[in-house]
Nucleic acid binder design. Structure first.
Length: 403
RNA sequence: GUGGACGUAGUUCAGUCGGUAGAGCACCAGUUUGUGGCACUGGGUGUCGCGGGUUCGAGCCCCGUCGUCCACCCCA
């Protein structure tokens, strides 16, 4: 027996229904906010992810499905969606147009990690990217949209926000932090020593008690923002307050990808184990120019489908369609033409074996059909078919032609 | 990548001291060839993850491997 690869899963029945429901709910809402669908390749040049997600990130360092293709190109299965969409935005020369562009996408992403609950090697994201809008109103709008999606799916969440600053305020802060950390590096844990180089702000979030003690009076980025970042962040909190969207400010919230700046946010759930982030995103004003496009402000997010799969409240499913069956072998073949006709308008389940009445009723029940239609001895003789509405229990016998 | 737990039927699990595997649910067939979900009767559907080893004999003990889960790391 051949099983799926480690960290990859098949979706069937209940799970695939959930998947579809999540995607269609998100799509419907995204459309109302002016987003249109974009499909980008799963395979991209490795350089794309190195330049966008960032060389220092774990994703690029050790989690990419990277290989040389038969033409000798260094390629990667996409580990996330934003880079590809930004690349497409530039490839299609949309950065040269003064028009704001908004795209939504969904599909598989790949990261070579150790799988666990809520963390697969092939997983799925629904995401949106808004290009060309620098206003913090757009940050607010996008957060509003995500909460609307989660509300529509019946998912409870906590929203965490932070500001990562911009090219004006972030670099000096980071420099100060690194030198501060370097001074005390002897006393910091092993992980933190590694983080000093890769992601110094993460050090502030270390769970090690000794580290926490040493860092208790360290400077927060949020207190060192430039005026513009400071004002935008304040504005965002005011807008969220007015909209009644509850949030907490997490000064240690850092997105794992290098391209983020200013607003960063994460939606988390405490019901799904340690992989608690169900959506994440923020502003990435510099990404387009990193990828050789014209400087274009942008903001986006992605929802982890597998992470919310079991949180979704599914709408009740109604019975649908017709179950067709016969009690004599002679009556089976006439069912085929009937089925073809009925399938122009509804779902039809057809049983190819002649069976007893009760057996058919059970079959109709299992098929979740709304109607059961049977041809027995009498019906065959009279050219009629017997129909019963399984919900209302009303039944009647009609000529085949009027069925 | 590191540490730990686990792996028996479709599924959830039991399996004693080492003696060729069992229960609920699910599933299939039937209970008057005409009224479904309920009930009753019958049916075990299995490479005990895989590969070695110890033993007269392994689901059970040992080693390896693969996989799942949990924590770390990281992230959606």
């Amino acid at each position: 027996m051949i099983n799926p690869l480690r960290g990859m899963k098949d979706l069937t029945f209940e799970e695939s229904r959930r998947y579809i429901h999540i995607i269609s709910t998100a799509v419907n809402i995204a459309k109302r906010y002016g987003y249109s669908y974009i499909e980008t390749p799963i395979l991209e040049e490795t350089a794309l992810f190195k330049r966008s997600v960032g060389n220092s990130s774990d994703i690029v360092n050790k989690e990419m499905y990277q290989f040389e293709d038969k033409g000798g190109y260094d390629v990667c299965m996409r580990p996330e969606g934003t880079a590809g969409v930004a690349r497409a935005f530039i490839s299609d020369k949309l950065d040269r147009q003064p028009i704001k562009q908004k795209f939504y996408y969904h599909g598989p992403m790949f990261r070579y990690e150790r799988p666990q609950k809520g963390r697969l090697r092939e997983f799925h994201q629904f995401g949106c990217e808004s290009f060309g809008e620098a206003s913090v109103y757009e940050d607010f709008t996008i957060i509003t949209m995500i909460s609307q999606i989660f509300d529509a799916l019946g998912i409870g969440f906590d929203l965490q926000i932070n500001s990562l600053g911009c090219t004006v305020c972030m670099p000096p802060y980071k420099q100060n932090l690194v030198s501060f950390l370097t001074d005390i590096k002897e006393d910091l844990c092993e992980d933190c020593n590694r983080r000093i180089d890769t992601n110094p702000i993460r050090v502030l979030d270390c769970k090690n008690k000794t580290c926490q003690l040493l860092l208790s009076n360290s400077q927060k980025l949020i207190d060192n923002l430039c005026d513009e970042c400071e004002n935008d962040f304040k504005k965002l909190t005011v807008l969220l307050d007015q909209a009644g969207i509850h949030y907490t400010i997490d000064t240690n919230l850092v997105r794992g990808l290098d391209y983020y700046n200013k607003t960063a946010f994460e939606f988390v759930s405490n019901e799904i184990g340690s992989q608690s982030a169900i959506a994440g995103g923020g502003r990435y004003d510099r990404l387009v120019e990193f990828l050789d496009g014209k400087p274009t402000p942008a903001v986006g997010f992605a929802i982890g489908i597998e992470r919310i799969m079991e949180l979704v409240k599914m709408p009740e499913t109604a019975r649908e369609g017709i179950y067709l069956g016969a009690m004599n072998d002679d009556a089976i073949e006439p069912l085929l033409a009937l089925a073809a006709r009925k399938r122009l308008e509804t779902k039809v389940t057809i049983e190819y074996n002649a069976k007893g009445f009760k057996s058919h009723m059970k079959g109709a029940d299992k098929a979740e059909a709304k109607y059961v239609a049977l041809i027995g001895e009498d019906e065959l003789k009279n050219g009629t078919i017997w129909i019963k509405d399984i919900e209302s229990r009303e039944e009647k016998t009609v000529p085949l032609e009027t069925f």
